[in-house]
Nucleic acid binder design. Structure first.
Lengths: 195, 195
DNA sequence: TTTCTTAATTAGCTTTTGTTAAGTGGGTTT
DNA sequence: AAACCCACTTAACAAAAGCTAATTAAGAAA
């Protein structure tokens, strides 16, 4: 808990101590065991989560009922069913803990209302949004620039911890490829390399 | 001009007339001919654009020096070198007019500072950010859910105007595939379909 | 009009991925 | 220990995409 506050301070240096304590009192701590969900597809929901510890993922279902991991979130990253929050719709995705995790969650409308009076809250929310946007853009770039095998290599280079912590089947859909293909790619890389 | 203000009012109904006129006075109108750029890769830049008319794209270079179109922006959508704005880096992408277009551009730091005093500005910026984020997420979902041919189909269904207005070579990289492949996909779709 | 240039299509071949199915191994449960 | 479950791997073949190059089409320039 203490260490988490320290991390927050480091990540958002402009937050005063009073704001942080207000924030902690507004937020709700939630602990999830591996496989437990924070939000389920179809639910109406209005909370946004900041990951304190662990690893979560958002997944949607494809036409075959398979889970497609759209995004992972780890320490100090925020995760939410954004379309659901912004458009007031039932969630189209599920947020689930990949390993046991701790979150602090906030009511989205409350946060935005608070922000109107307290600029610090607004700044915090905007920063979180901007970060989330940059991550999404980076992900789109990976898909447009790199072919499946290269995407795996880039993921390995940039976010190796994901490859260590998430099972292959999640990673495969996250990379937009088939689990069988990903296994093959791994082998190609580990053995004599290509060409 | 008049019609544009009407569109703004429709898209952001909470903006008062005074805010809108303030906004218009703060913004700078810019007209781009086809192929002209708003921001070039490598430049430092701090403006964010709202498209009034036309069609723009952001592209980056891959390792072979080919242009990869990461995102399109059309009427009432915002476009900017986000990573450049948020992290104060030289732009890693170029923003270019796909056809002759009109923009209104704002200084990003000014807007954020203004927002601290005037909640309406903040709300506008957050709404724009949230929309941009939703678009990026949708795009990631397309990549993870659908194979190249299906991605083209989805694009056709959801954003057919892009397919009418943007040349194939831009669309191909936008969809993460080779122009030759896209041409083949088109043919496969138009002729007897698959199977 | 003819010429030039560039985008798009088509073709032939290679490489990669998708698909289905059969192993393999680790970890639980009984 | 045996039986079971599940993730991952491996294999074999089909389908799709990548790559190179040649051809066609269309628009701009001479």
């Amino acid at each position: 808990m203490e260490e988490f506050i320290l991390k927050i301070k480091k990540a958002f240096p402009y937050l005063t101590d009073t704001t942080i304590s207000k924030l902690m009192s507004l937020g709700e701590i939630q602990v999830l065991q591996e496989g437990e969900t924070f939000i389920k597809q179809g639910e109406r929901h209005n909370r946004i989560a900041l990951v304190m510890q662990g690893l979560l993922r958002n997944y949607i279902m494809n036409d075959n009922g398979e889970q497609i991991t759209v995004v992972f979130a780890t320490e100090l990253q925020s995760i939410a069913p954004y379309k659901c929050l912004f458009l007031q719709q039932p969630a189209s995705e599920t947020t689930e803990a990949v390993k046991s995790s701790m979150l602090i969650t906030f009511d989205y409308p409350t946060m935005r209302k608070l922000g109107e009076e307290e600029p610090e809250f607004n700044k915090l929310y905007m920063d979180a949004l901007e970060k989330t946007l940059m991550n999404a853009i980076e992900r789109v770039e990976d898909f447009t620039i790199a072919k499946p095998e290269e995407r795996y290599q880039r993921l390995l280079a940039k976010h190796g911890y994901l490859i260590e912590q998430a099972p292959l089947k999640y990673l495969a859909s996250y990379l937009g490829i088939n689990p069988v293909s990903l296994s093959r790619i791994r082998k190609r890389i580990s053995t004599g390399k290509k060409k």
